[in-house]
Amino acid sequence: MDQYMILKDYVSSADAETALFYVIAILAISLSVGVISDRNIIRSGFILIGVFGAISGLFLMLQAQFLALAQVMIYAVGITLVVVIALMLTNPRSEREAVITEGDEFSQETGAVQFIQRLQQGTPAFVAVFSFFTIYLAIRSESWTPVTEKVSTDNVKVLGEALTTVYSLPFEFASVLLLAALIGAIMLAKAEKRQPAIESAED
């Protein structure tokens, strides 16, 4: 496709690529901040789809077309399901109108209980900060060498071969795990369905 020489040169130049990376990265980070800061669980679910969309953009920049599309396909639908479950388990209206009261939540309790409750409340923040630093240090301590060889354009084929040869065992394990989850879900759903029949029999 030599008719797009100049465009191609420009798009694949290091400057453009870096700029694009920063745009997508900033988008992903700000959206993920949005996910945890939004009080409305449904809306944070929808923002989460945006986060995964941005990450699939990163995959695209790494020439991993198939992975990026799989990311979109699976996470778009998967998170819609999460949103649906959130819709079913919460009452959006009451959530929207709920007044957030802070402050003298703990005043009635004794000191020790108060301390434990505060500790419980702080745990997620602690875990988040801890894991961020762990990952940050792990990434920094590794010495990364840029790959110079060209990535195959037909990476579907490469992926398929890898999954069926080198990584066939982990792949199968993952499949079995999913199957187990599926069967478990069916069992739970089935047991719940039988329940009204028992009740009516008792009546």
């Binding site: 079913m88 009452n91 069992m187 739970l188 047991a191 719940e192 329940q195």
Partner: peptide, 14 residues
């Protein structure tokens, strides 16, 4: 065990 966890109906709004 299964019946223990599922006999308690999930609270859903009408």
């Amino acid at each position: 065990m299964v019946s223990d966890t599922t006999s308690r109906p999930l609270k859903t709004d009408e």
